[in-house]
Structures are given as C-alpha cells and as structure tokens.
C-alpha cells in the first residue's frame, strides 16, 4: 500500500512560499489548519485583531526560531564588522613587520585582541591583525560576486524563462557552454590577462564564470510562476510585460534565488582564497586570507598558526554563509523540512 497523503501539518499557507493546493475538497489536516490559521480572525465582516502579515514577516517569524540563523547571523555580523571597521578589533598595522623580534613567534592564547594573540608570521607581522584585516577582501569579493552573479544570472534566467522560444534556446545553450568551464579554471585563465589584479578584477572573473547556476534556478522558477493563475489573471486585466515580470513574477521567484545566492556566497569566498593561494588572485600588499595562506604554506611545520588562523577564519566564514542560506531556505519554504 502506498502510504502517501500523510497530512502536512505545517500550515503551508501561513509561511509557505507557495501554498499547497489540495483544493478545498481535500480534507487533510493541512487544509484544516490552513483554514484555521486564517480564521483566527473569525468570520466575514467581523473586525479582527489579527495584523496583516506579509510572507516576509512570516519568514522572519520562522527565522527567529532557528538557532542556525542566530549562530550564523552573529558570526556574520562579527565578520562584517571586521571587514568594515577592522580597527575596532585591532590597532596593529597588518603590514608592519618586525622580523627581529617576532619571526614566527607562536600564539599567546591569553592575550585577547592583542597583536601577539595569534602569534606572528614569517615576516614578523601580527597574524591577528592580518586575519582581521583580511576579512575585508574576502567579504567584499564574496558579496560583490554574489550581487553581480544574481544580477547577470537573474536577467538571463528571467529572459529565457519568460520569453521562451528561440531566446530560451540560445540563452540556455549559452548557459550550458559556460557550465562546462569550471569556475576555478575559468577564473585562473581570465585573471592571467590582467597584470594589475585588484578585488574588482577578481570579482569580474568570478562573475564571468559563476552566473549560470542562478540563471538556471531563475529560469526554472520563472517558468513555473509564468503559468500561475495570478499571472494569467494579470494578463486578463491587460497588464503589460513589465508589470507582469516585475510585480508578479519577480517577487515570487526571489525566494529560491536568495537561497542559492547565499549558499553560493561562501563558495565564492573560498574560490577567491584559492585563486590568491595559487598566486593568481589578489597579490601582496593587499591583505587577504588567501594571500596569507599562500605565503605561510612553506612554514607549515615551523609555524602552523600562521596558516591555520586565516584558514580557520575562511572556513568559518564560508560555513556561516552556507548555514545562513540553509536557515533562509527553511524559513522561505517550510515544506522542505
């Protein structure tokens, strides 16, 4: 016997991105509870105390209960503060080197927030200060690539999904072609062309080879929403393409795109570090975790702290973004749980 139709109790219409449509006929508990939730107000024509809640507010209600969200959120707030105002955390200049006194000195774990907390690297620079200042490059690259990728991939996916036909064929094949190029390899090759590599060139290179996933997600979501009844209803009213795309389809496809983008953000940060490690991304006077990992690899046995601290922060940042993405996905789509 197929044991299906177990009732979904999470009232999908309360927090769900897409209400589960069982039709009014289906008598699952979900239907009951869904009706119930709306009915907290009572019957028609009766004043109610229930406030209007948008789906965003519902998602926030859901997020507030998630420890994943709080853990990753607090971590990210710290990291972003670090990126924006590193001097809040340390007043040591990350580029100041004192080889005579500090060559590969080990960490002093009890010296919180002091220059020698994480020890010194092979150049005699404070690892703590470098780690704090390195956050900026990583986070800027991560955030900018994500924004750019969402924009490029979003537009491509939206055009392909909404207009379909030959445009879809062309754009989808183009996406497939780019999918064939690994992000890292593409970035490596493209960055070779630049002699002066800054945060922005790295961002550009990663965007050029990273937009496809968003494009696919967007295309799929747009195709689903395009067929939705409320879009048909808007068309029946005589709404134009712009209104349908931006007022009706876009708000309903943002959910999955945000989730994919947040999870991918961690990956871009890791890729930036990898490129820098390979010596093809950011370069020395720029302080970055990748640069530091690259510089201290040869001293792994003598002073592992010089490599492990930036590497640890890198992992932590990537993890925080991925966890945040997970929490956001759960909040936007309770059906997944």
């Amino acid at each position: 016997m197929p044991d299906n139709k177990s009732p979904q109790v999470t009232p999908s219409s309360v927090a769900g991105a897409g209400p589960a449509v069982t039709g009014g006929l289906a008598d699952t508990a979900a239907a009951g509870v869904a009706v119930a939730a709306e009915l907290a107000a009572g019957t028609d024509k009766q004043t109610s105390t229930e406030k209007a809640r948008s789906l965003g507010q519902d998602a926030w209600r859901e997020l507030r209960r998630s420890w994943l969200f709080w853990a990753s959120g607090i971590l990210l707030v710290l990291l972003i503060l670090m990126a924006a105002w590193p001097t809040l955390f340390t007043d040591v200049d990350p580029r100041q080197a004192d080889l005579r006194n500090h060559y590969l000195t080990g960490p002093q774990w009890s010296h919180f927030f002091q220059a020698d907390w994480f020890g010194y690297n092979v150049q005699g620079q404070s690892v703590y200060a470098r780690t704090v200042h390195g956050a900026r490059a990583s986070i800027i690259v991560g955030v900018c690539v994500t924004l750019a990728v969402t924009l490029v991939g979003g537009i491509v996916g939206m055009l392909a999904g909404y207009f379909g036909g030959w445009l879809d064929t062309v754009l989808s094949r183009l996406t497939d072609v780019f999918f064939g190029i690994p992000l890292l390899l593409g970035g490596l090759v493209l960055l070779q062309a630049f002699t002066n590599r800054t945060i922005w060139t790295v961002t550009f290179a990663l965007t050029a080879f990273g937009w496809m996933q968003i494009a696919r997600v967007m295309r799929g979501a747009v195709i689903t929403q395009k067929e939705a009844d409320f879009v048909t209803a808007a068309r029946a009213l005589g709404a134009g393409t712009g209104r349908i795309l931006f007022r009706h389809i876009l708000p309903n496809v943002l959910g999955p795109v945000i989730v994919v983008a947040t999870i991918a953000l961690g990956g871009y940060i890791a890729t930036e570090a990898t490129l820098s490690y390979l010596g093809i991304g950011l370069k020395d006077p720029t302080v970055s975790w990748g640069v530091d990992i690259s510089a201290s690899q040869k001293d792994l046995r003598d002073g592992p702290h010089a490599l492990l601290m930036p590497a640890g922060f890198l992992s932590l940042t990537v993890l925080a973004f991925i966890l945040l993405g997970d929490a956001v996905r759960d909040a936007l789509d309770p059906k997944l749980r």
């Binding site: 139709k5 177990s6 009732p7 109790v9 008598d27 699952t28 508990a29 239907a31 009951g32 119930a36």
Partner: peptide
C-alpha cells in the same frame, strides 16, 4: 461526510496508521 477540516480523513489515516507522528 464532512467538509475540509472536519477530521474525516484524519480519522481514516489514524485507522490505517499512516498519520505522521509527530506532529500528530
């Protein structure tokens, strides 16, 4: 006989033992 939310299907699912517990 009943409308949605009347509990008619939930009763049947309880008989069959196919309710998801929890939340049920």
């Amino acid at each position: 006989l009943g409308e949605s939310g009347s509990g008619k299907s939930v009763t049947a699912q309880a008989i069959m033992g196919i309710l998801d517990m929890p939340p049920a």
